[in-house]
């Protein structure tokens, strides 16, 4: 923490940054009763008014600590209903919390260093072979490729010139369940076959959305055995 930049509290009993004040109160070097919080806030508001650039993060920190100070003081001023041992000293609670947070902050800086060391290391990121496939080179299909295949099927369907589009409503939930149950049964699903089997344009569009939804949720994976070959959809195995 950069002391030179952080806001300095000036009181009769104490001069310095606010978090130090908090620390001293914890150490019982300063009695919270001697701290005029109204004065601190008034001075602070004056300081903010004079300031041209406000560093939001630092000011938020001030607010937090000031609020905690007020909380401590109000706790101390209120008559204790149950002054029994179970009620932890509010000052201690606060300090524990601050210490916890400080610990996390320090851990962050260590982890950031480690991340910096690891980032330039690249790992392999290919698709694991699927147990049922016949040793073909698998390419994970992009959504773009998937959409392209879908539109070509739709075009074909259009040419079939079907005239019966009526009456039936489809539900996303049912469709997803249908896709999943096919996958559980057959292990995979052939993209072309699947859409050719759909009765209507509407149903095909809905199925496509369901498929995209499943891919996005990382429940299934779309794989093309080779460029221009049929696309297959597999259930993704959890590997975490």
């Amino acid at each position: 923490m950069d002391i030179s930049k952080s806001y300095q509290v000036k009181l009769e009993v104490f001069q310095g940054p606010l978090d130090l004040l908090l620390f001293l109160i914890k150490k019982k070097k300063i009695d919270i009763h001697d701290i005029p919080i109204a004065t601190i806030t008034r001075e602070y508001l004056k300081y903010l008014d004079q300031k041209e650039n406000i560093n939001l993060e630092r000011e938020a920190e001030f607010l937090l600590i000031a609020a905690l100070l007020i909380h401590i003081k109000s706790q101390m001023l209120l008559p204790q209903v149950n002054a029994l041992e179970e009620e932890k000293d509010p000052r201690q609670l606060l300090v524990d919390k601050l210490l916890d947070y400080q610990k996390i902050k320090a851990a962050c800086s260590i982890l950031r260093e480690k991340e910096k060391d690891r980032l330039p290391e690249w790992h392999r990121n290919f698709l694991p072979p699927l147990s049922l496939s016949d040793n073909l080179d698998l390419i994970e299909v992009s959504l773009f490729g998937l959409a392209e295949a879908f539109f070509s099927i739709m075009k074909r369907k259009e040419q079939e010139n079907l005239k019966t589009i009526k009456g039936k409503t489809y539900s996303v939930k049912e469709k997803i369940e249908e896709i999943l149950s096919t996958l559980y049964k057959d292990k995979f699903l052939d993209f072309l076959d699947f859409f050719n089997k759909q009765e209507s344009m509407e149903e095909a569009v809905l199925s496509f959305f369901c498929l995209l939804e499943l891919i996005k949720a990382r429940i299934v994976i779309a794989i093309q055995e080779n460029l221009f070959r049929s696309i297959k959809v597999w259930l993704r195995k959890e590997n975490c």
Binding site: I104, A107, C108, E115, K116, L119
Partner: peptide
């Protein structure tokens, strides 16, 4: 890189 907030969150979880 992880964002500062994400880094803070993950170290909180880790500890």
């Amino acid at each position: 890189k992880l964002s500062p907030a994400a880094l803070e969150t993950i170290s909180t979880i880790a500890y």
